[in-house]
Design a protein around this nucleic acid. Sequence first.
RNA 1: GGCGCUAUCGUCUAACGGUUAGGACGGAGCCCUCUCAAGGCUCAAAUACGGGUUCGAUUCCCGUUAGCGCUACCA
Length: 492
Amino acid sequence: MSVRRPYSPRCYTGIFMNRVRFAPSPTGFLHIGSARTFIFNWLYARHTGGSMILRIDDTDLERNTEASLNSIFEGLRWLDLGWDEQYRQSDRLALHRQIAQAIFVKGLAYRDFTPAQADQGERRAGDTWLFNPGMREMVREESDRRAASGDRFALRYRVPREPARQICFTDAVYGAQAKSTADIEDFALLRSDGMPTYHLASCADDADLRISHIVRGQDHLTNTFKHCLIFEATGVAMPQFAHLPLLVAPDGTKLSKRRHGPVVSVTTYRDAGFLPQAFVNFLCLLGWSPKNDREQMTRQELVEAFSLEGINRSNTIVNFKEDDPFDPKAVWLNAETIRTMPVEQLAELLLPFVAAAGFHADRARMVQITPLIQERMKLLRDVATVADFFFVEELAPYDPAELIPQKGDAAMARAALEKARQSLAATEFTHDTLEAALRRASEELKIKAGQMFQPIRVAVCGRKNAPPLFGTLEALGKERCLHRIEKAIQKL
RNA sequence: GGCGCUAUCGUCUAACGGUUAGGACGGAGCCCUCUCAAGGCUCAAAUACGGGUUCGAUUCCCGUUAGCGCUACCA
């Protein structure tokens, strides 16, 4: 968990410094949509030299879980972006109640003693509900008397009616927005258990933390009118809003764990061997573009290129399938990142995946193997399927027919392997000498080089498709290669 | 139902009213090549529909359709 840091000196330089926040509620694992929201906030903060604030919005006591909180921190830590300040809403309840009270005292909110509706299924969607009759108009004396007598109530915002008026704001992404108060219901500020609702807590904290830009999912676009009313009632300046298009599944429905499974969880990508840098790059491209056809970008390039103007307005499909849970673009970006990574660094990252697959390799060994598999991996976990034969003593059983070369037969395979055994036994195991020796051997046998190499490849790797032969032989070492060739000859 | 938002290749997207509608991923093919990759080249693939405005609409306006979001003490 990140330590709460004091304001950096730069923050003292002025009240005009941008302040953005990411405010997840700990009611589930870190969702990729949330991760994208975090990233966009972070990029905006870094691009403008502002501050990034993490605020845990945990006012829903019923649904909060410790596991979920851990998952959020785990996911954010993996993204490796960091933040400047950290808060927890549940530490700030006094502030929320104080703001609610202030709104109530101004007459802009009222007590609603109607019991909470448990039977929402009964309600027909046809009705437009605005407020509970009798509650909005209740005289203050009666309201006070019932409250004093212990009747439970929710505190509701008294949305202006008769005359209704337009609530307006300008969204940095969606442009000018307006909605009549005639279409806004008297939303709750405090629940009957005294806990603040999301709307109240969020606005109170945004105001108190002097958030300058609220960058969040488009599902909040219509909620923003309510938030405008709260900011107005509180008498603070409104922040700027920027709503992000939603991430949806290939069928167009909202991403959800229940329907779409682990593909919506950030840790799934981490565990499969995505690199945070590639994953962040991928998420940035969902609903934002630098408008210059750039796609592969470093973190620094993203910070420099990011702008709210580059954000799109339509929902974005995360293109996963039942049998292939990862968006091909994400996989490609990851593979590109793997390919351009320094060998030592990649080798280091691969070690835990090797261990997770039940193999053993030390750092030096991994550094030796990595160049051979680097451009053959899309995800770090692929090391288990691409390099398995480097890690085992005895190869898993394979079909001896694989040993037979193109346009050849078992006799040719046998001749090639026997020649190889003899030749390799007398050869120094370095790439160039191996190549020279085996090419010479194929010439002596009067067969094509490819017909010579395939039986050897299958003999030492246990399959036809494998890394380049000479480097592989070198990495495997003479003893092991000769042993495997011997076993292959026996199979024929 | 009400209110709001959105609509360019399969997907992510570009195109301050004038382009053969561009790029990327994925797909197909060819080249390279010891297999597989990687790399190079090529191809297929889009402005939801209908009206306007305009000399000219992907672009501006209206409508239709579709999708998404919000909608009584979830966030």
